[in-house]
Structure formats: structure tokens, C-alpha cells
């Protein structure tokens, strides 16, 4: 019997995500609100792609479409060549709010996916392991209201990781954390991705965060969102905030967002 940690790492291979010509719109108060316009992008297995854009430009909508929570008006989304039509535990989404179930303990929240699919009996050890991976060993029996923002978001991460996702969809997961916790968790998320090899698609409006964590940064225009640029960040991890190449890319990205004057 190999140790459980090795099991987890080997099972979680990254998926390919294909977004082909996706457009989407909402109807709000009898008005049509286009949010995505002809988006095409491809995330290679095990890659880390950041979607960068102003608030409300439609990045989160794209993430919901990738998760299978909504269907696009036009275009196709595929994971490993298979059409995404509904949610599936192999692609887990993590929101800006931890959205933990307040009536469940930390352990029970992390075990949610296994319980929902009736796999809890064989997966108890996995829940324990993932909780210690995110550093919450001593809080298994705590309730969400007893946790800090960073701890709650770690539980949310553990809840996702328990399912061995092959595609992790992060919707501004660090957006509501205080700046110190945020820096710590940027490092932790990057390390986890390197260890486990899943594909990551992360929505953020923090330029520096995108450049520190991702291999590719896709810059979106204002709503309806189009792809404005696809920046490659070919820097080794762990990255330094004051790396000249990163500063250059930061300048470029801010320029693409129409904010070059600030720099």
C-alpha cells in the first residue's frame, strides 16, 4: 500500500479545457446585457491560467460556464474533449466567499463532496489528509463562525481538493482576505498546484496576484468581455514581486486594462 499522499498526487492529473467561441448574455429588467463576446481559449493539462479584468466584466460568468453551472448562449465548452453540460466533481469551483455550510463542522464541510456521492465510508482518511494539507488539523470540530476569513477559505479549498479535481476553478478566491493572509495563501495555492498537477483557471482583478501565480495571464476587456491579450509569464517559482520581468509585465497588463497612468 502506497501512502495516501502519493495516491492523491498520482490520481489528480490536469485536464484540458477548451472554450470555443463562447458568447453569453443576461436578461436584466427586460434589457439584454451581453457579458461575454466570442471567447476562445485553451488551457493545457496542468497549466495555471489567470483571467484578469475589471470588476463585473464577465470573468466570473465564464467560470460558472466552465463549471457547468450555467449553459452558454453560443459556443462550446469542453473538458478533455467532452462537452460540459452540467456540474461534475472533477471540476470544482471555489468562490470568493467560502460558502461553508454553517451547520457543518470543518471536517463535515470538507467531506461534503464524498458524502454527496456516497463515497464517505472509504474516504475518511482522505478528508483528514486534505485538512492537514491546508493546515487545519486542530480545527476539525470547529464551526465556520469560529474561523477567521483565511481559515474559512482554507476549508473551502480542502472541500474542493478532497474530490481530486482535475480542473480547479477559482473565482477571486483570495479577494476578501486581509493582505497578509492573502500573500501567504498565494504561495500555498501555487505550491499545491505544483504538487498536485491539476489545471487551474483563476479569475482575479489583482494584476500582481495573476503574475505571481499564473503561467498565462489572459486580459479581458470591459463588458461584454473579449480577450484583449494573452501574456506568458515564463518565470520560475517561487516568484519575486520585484523581479524586473514581472514589473515589466505588470506595466503591460495595467496598460491593457487602461490604467498605465497609475504606474
Amino acid at each position: 500500500m502506497v501512502s495516501a499522499a502519493l495516491d492523491l498526487a498520482s490520481e489528480a492529473a490536469g485536464a484540458t479545457l477548451d472554450v470555443q467561441g463562447v458568447s453569453h448574455r443576461f436578461v436584466l429588467h427586460n434589457e439584454i446585457l451581453p457579458v461575454l463576446h466570442d471567447i476562445t481559449l485553451r488551457a493545457e493539462p496542468g497549466s495555471f491560467v489567470a483571467l484578469l479584468g475589471a470588476s463585473g466584466c464577465g470573468k466570473s460568468t465564464l467560470l460558472r460556464l466552465c463549471a457547468g453551472l450555467d449553459r452558454p448562449r453560443r459556443g462550446r465548452l469542453q473538458m478533455d474533449g467532452e462537452e460540459i453540460t452540467r456540474p461534475h466533481p472533477s471540476r470544482v469551483i471555489m468562490f470568493q466567499d467560502p460558502t461553508l455550510f454553517p451547520w457543518r463542522t470543518v471536517w463535515d464541510n470538507a467531506a461534503l463532496g464524498l458524502e454527496a456521492r456516497g463515497e464517505l465510508r472509504h474516504g475518511r482518511g482522505r478528508v483528514d489528509e486534505v485538512l492537514s494539507l491546508v493546515g487545519l488539523d486542530n480545527f476539525r470540530r470547529a464551526y465556520p463562525h469560529q474561523l477567521s476569513g483565511g481559515m474559512a477559505q482554507r476549508v473551502s479549498l480542502a472541500r474542493a481538493l478532497v474530490n481530486d479535481p482535475r480542473l480547479l476553478l477559482l473565482d477571486e478566491p483570495l479577494g476578501k482576505l486581509d493582505s497578509l493572509t492573502r500573500l501567504t495563501m498565494q504561495g500555498e495555492l501555487t505550491r499545491l498546484w505544483q504538487q498536485r498537477g491539476f489545471t487551474v483557471l483563476m479569475v482575479t482583478h489583482d494584476v500582481e496576484e495573476a503574475l505571481l501565480m499564473a503561467q498565462r495571464v489572459i486580459v479581458f476587456s470591459e463588458r461584454p468581455a473579449r480577450i484583449r491579450a494573452d501574456l506568458r509569464v515564463e518565470l520560475p517559482y517561487p516568484r519575486r514581486r520585484d523581479d524586473p520581468e514581472l514589473l515589466r509585465l505588470r506595466h503591460e497588463a495595467l496598460g491593457l486594462l487602461g490604467l498605465e497612468a497609475i504606474w
Binding site: 453551472l69 461534475h88 468562490f95 454527496a116
Partner: peptide, 11 residues
């Protein structure tokens, strides 16, 4: 959001 989370996890 609670339903979204649970549905994603296969509920």
C-alpha cells in the same frame, strides 16, 4: 450559492 457548491460536488 449553497446549491451551486453542492451541485458542483456531485449532489
Amino acid at each position: 450559492a449553497y446549491y451551486d457548491v453542492a451541485r458542483t460536488l456531485g449532489a
